[in-house]
Amino acid sequence: MDNVDLDVTDGRVLGLVGESGSGKSTIARAVLGLAPVHAGTITAGGQEVRRLSARQRARRVQMIFQDPFGSLNPRMNVGGIIREGLEALGELPARERAAEVTRLLELVSLSPDLAERLPRRLSGGQRQRVAIARALAARPGVLIADEITSALDVSVQAQVLNVLRGILAAERFSMLFISHNLAVVRYISDDIAVMRDGVIVETGPVDEVLAAPRHPYTRELLAAIPQLHPVT
């Protein structure tokens, strides 16, 4: 990373886009404290993330990982996976946790009946929605979504993105949405940052940047989006 300066505005979605290897996931890991930061600061809610305890950091930032199967405990059922996050924070009385698990499942458009199932008995799209529900259980100020649709079929991608848009409309939080797919970033984001080789080359409101990109690399990404042309 070189002079990366990003601002995820309160209540808005910042889309971070770039080709594989550009450094997008490294930024996500740095925010979570999983990658070393040799210079600069990362703040959430006005506090430097690296100075927070694990519990404090969990309340500030949560992440949805790319692989919904690998990120869920295969030995725990869906209800236990979501409830574990509630128990770790210790802010909700035990008698209210079952109702909160039901609420979170319904928020991501899943039946509460799935609470007793193991992850292996779910589809890829269902598993990713469980991962979203688990992240939301901590009621974070910032949610990081790292390539969350890249492992899913196109039709399932649309389902997950629509669920996420509905949640963003109902629940107020900020999100860093990471993807190599510019079309997906355009659909979900308010603002955009374009990254290449560890450097942010362009930022701004998503509609403005994609309507009139200033940097040649942004124009290359736009040109790479498949287009349908009618046969005449």
Rank of each mutant, 00 (worst) to 15 (best):
R60L: 15
S155G: 12
R165K: 15
A158D: 01
A39L: 03
S71K: 02
R60V: 11
G125F: 01
A39W: 04
R60Q: 15
P36F: 07
V156P: 09
L89E: 11
S189I: 04
Q159E: 14
R60M: 15
I167V: 13
G11M: 09
R103P: 01
N3I: 13
G79H: 03
A44Y: 05
T102P: 00
E100T: 03
S22P: 04
E106T: 14
A28P: 03
P119Y: 07
A145E: 00
Q62D: 09
V108Q: 05
L16P: 04
A193H: 08
S22K: 07
V31C: 13
S22Y: 03
I192E: 01
R51K: 14
T26D: 14
R139T: 12
S150C: 02
I192Q: 00
R139H: 14
L122Y: 03
R57S: 02
R97M: 02
H180L: 13
V201N: 06
V142M: 04
A99D: 02
R186A: 13
H229W: 14
Q62W: 03
V206P: 04
L143Q: 06
G18D: 05
L168T: 11
R95G: 12
I27E: 00
V8F: 05
G70K: 09
E147F: 07
L210S: 01
A58E: 10
V154I: 10
A169Y: 12
P36V: 03
Q227W: 12
T41Y: 13
R139Y: 12
H215D: 15
L210Y: 03
R196T: 02
V37P: 05
Y187M: 13
G204M: 06
S174D: 08
V209L: 09
R121C: 08
V17W: 02
G204C: 04
R134K: 13
I82A: 00
D10W: 10
A54R: 15
V108A: 02
V108Y: 04
S189E: 06
P36K: 11
S179M: 07
N73Q: 14
V154T: 09
L161S: 00
T9I: 10
S179T: 05
A170T: 09
A224N: 05
N181L: 11
Q47D: 06
L118H: 09
R120G: 12
Q159Y: 11
V61N: 03
L143S: 07
A28Q: 03
R75P: 00
G125L: 00
G80Q: 15
G46Y: 13
G33L: 10
V156M: 13
I27T: 04
S189D: 06
L136M: 14
R83S: 00
M1K: 05
I200D: 08
P93A: 06
V184L: 11
S174C: 11
A35T: 04
A88S: 13
A137W: 00
E171F: 10
R127D: 13
A94E: 01
R97E: 01
A183R: 08
P93K: 04
